[in-house]
Amino acid sequence: MVQKLVFLPRLESLRGLAAVSVVGYHASGQFTDTYVTGMAPVVLFFVLSGFVLARSLARNDDIIEFLRHRIFRLFPAAIATVLLLTALHEAFGFYHGFEPDFSPLNVILNALMIKHDINGPMWSMTVECFATPVIILSFLAGRRFGPRSLIPLIAILFGLSFVGPYAHLLGGYANLAPLHAFVLGVALHFSGRGLVEAIGGRQMAAAIVACILFFYCGLQKQTAPIIFLEACSSGLLIALIAFGAPQRGFRFLDQPVIGFYGRISFSFYLLHMIGLSIAVRISSIAGWPMLSILLSTVLGVLLTTPMAWMSWRFIEKPFIAMGKKWRDPRRGAVTTT
């Protein structure tokens, strides 16, 4: 079953802003003793991923093709990043965070996103891989029984997010507490338009409230209720951008530079700790933590950007194209979805 759905560039730009903001969050942790971890942008990534992947399945519900495209989309850039960090450690002793195990087996496990100790931010990719069957089943359930059928699953996953052994089931830095965010994103694919229509002429006010709530939660300790509120506020913003009337408040997302960071956002997220680690060494000013954070954030973004662009241009794009051109033997033709 194939359904025509248009590309939404503002959502790509939103993802780019979230990726860049992670640099600021992580820079703060380098100079201050804070419980602010940068979870909020990751929760937004998860809601957006559920929404976008549901749209992808709506366009083409062939699960085999979907999984193949996900492999070609996620793994090449992730593998390249792990190999780059391994090479930097071998050549210069470079690493970020706690020194990880660079044995061949652990490098392979990191490259496959089963572990993430070599590149800590890749914990979110470990969770995303774990969430893939949840996203598929949520989409199938939503299409068959309607979006309300997903409410019990969201409620169950939210309840489990209070349980420590569940939240840390995948080990390392991985946190399953935001798993419900993916299902919420899938639900928005089916019900987002109705939600926005119910808001009516108060869409800009709703967007402002969602932004305030999101930023407030992003500065709090990441408890289960806070993560849930981040998912809800992210979902409202995504629905308003995807289905709402054109709003002046969202026009900044049309800026070419923001769109650029949206395109390279995946590689940027994977590589940003390399750029930030170098920036912290250069920008640290004793006795001036806030200035050090600001300088490190700006320099970290500048150093990461060319690396991310090269990864996007020479790794992401070719492998995505390869996945789309894969010949499906059941059809005897080249797939184009």
Score class of each variant (00 low, 15 high):
Arg68Met: 09
His69Gly: 11
Arg70Lys: 13
Ile71Phe: 13
Phe72Val: 03
Arg73Trp: 06
Phe75Tyr: 13
Pro76Asn: 03
Pro76Arg: 01
Pro76Phe: 01
Pro76Ser: 02
Ala78Asp: 00
Ala78Met: 02
Ala80Asn: 00
Thr81Ser: 09
Leu83Pro: 06
Leu83Ile: 04
Leu85Ser: 00
Thr86Ile: 00
Thr86Gln: 00
Leu88Arg: 10
Glu90Leu: 14
Glu90His: 14
Phe92Thr: 07
Phe92Ala: 13
Gly93Trp: 02
Gly93Tyr: 03
Phe94Thr: 02
Phe94Lys: 08
Tyr95Asn: 10
Tyr95Ile: 02
Gly97Cys: 04
Glu99Gln: 15
Pro100Arg: 03
Asp101Ala: 12
Asp101Tyr: 07
Ser103Cys: 14
Pro104Thr: 05
Leu105Ser: 15
Val107Phe: 06
Ile108Phe: 08
Ile108Ser: 05
Asn110Thr: 01
Leu112Glu: 10
Asp117Tyr: 08
Asp117Pro: 05
Asn119Glu: 14
Gly120Asn: 11
Gly120Ser: 13
Met122Asp: 03
Met122Ile: 07
Trp123Lys: 00
Met125Pro: 09
Met125Glu: 12
Met125Lys: 03
Thr126Asn: 02
Thr126His: 02
Val127Met: 12
Glu128Asp: 14
Glu128Gln: 12
Glu128Gly: 08
Cys129Ser: 11
Cys129Gly: 11
Phe130Val: 10
Ala131His: 09
Thr132Tyr: 12
Pro133Thr: 10
Val134Glu: 15
Ile135Arg: 09
Ser138Phe: 10
Ser138Leu: 15
